[in-house]
Design a protein around this nucleic acid. Structure first.
Lengths: 94, 94
DNA sequence: GCGGTCCAATACCCTTTGGATCTGGGTGGT
DNA sequence: ACCACCCAGATCCAAAGGGTATTGGACCGC
């Protein structure tokens, strides 16, 4: 599992569409598709319901919904980690 | 920034020694050293005080200490994320 | 029923990343 | 002075990750 995979997953979960998510992430669709599958493989469960015939959207599976919560927290925490370094290195602006 | 870099960093922070951390992580010392430097580069600040002449330990810098807290949370959250998928996929043992 | 559209997945190639080995420089202990 | 320890740099090679082109399945209008 990697941070990029997590970013990718969140984007797809939000867009409910791989192609749109790819545009948003400035990558092409196939790599995104692959990383998604790879992530599902590692986790041992599908994160999306692709089966839905009459519905083209990439809908989150139950596992996907559970994962999404943590995924968001991870990304936020990463952001915070980077900030904290900058903050502690330059505690004051002067 | 990647999850492996974060793992590496935590290990070194705990061991206060790159070589030992490398053994613990089952990687060799040079890659570990490089990832550390790379991480510091990305963050824009050194995470360790290597300057200390008479002291061989890799001591955390103030920025390093700040980062460590988040780093641990990130790894814990990643762990939790994986667990949550397994849990929601197989809510019961039967 | 047939072509056109939309979308994810696969095939293939190529660049980049990351790990391993070997080496060097600097410090401390005996 | 010699040896041990430790981090960083150089070099090489395998693996990962992204891009383009293409396929395959489902739906829509005609």
């Amino acid at each position: 599992m990697s941070l990029t995979q997590i970013q990718y997953f969140v984007a797809v979960a939000e867009e409910e569409n791989v192609t749109r998510a790819a545009r948003r992430l400035h990558v092409s669709q196939p790599p995104l598709s692959r990383q998604l599958l790879k992530l599902e493989g590692e986790l041992g469960a599908p994160l999306f319901d692709r089966a839905a015939a009459g519905d083209k959207r990439m809908q989150l599976s139950p596992e996907g919904r559970a994962f999404l919560q943590h995924a968001r927290r991870i990304l936020a925490e990463v952001e915070a980690a980077a900030q904290s370094v900058k903050a502690s290195g330059a505690p004051r602006e002067t």
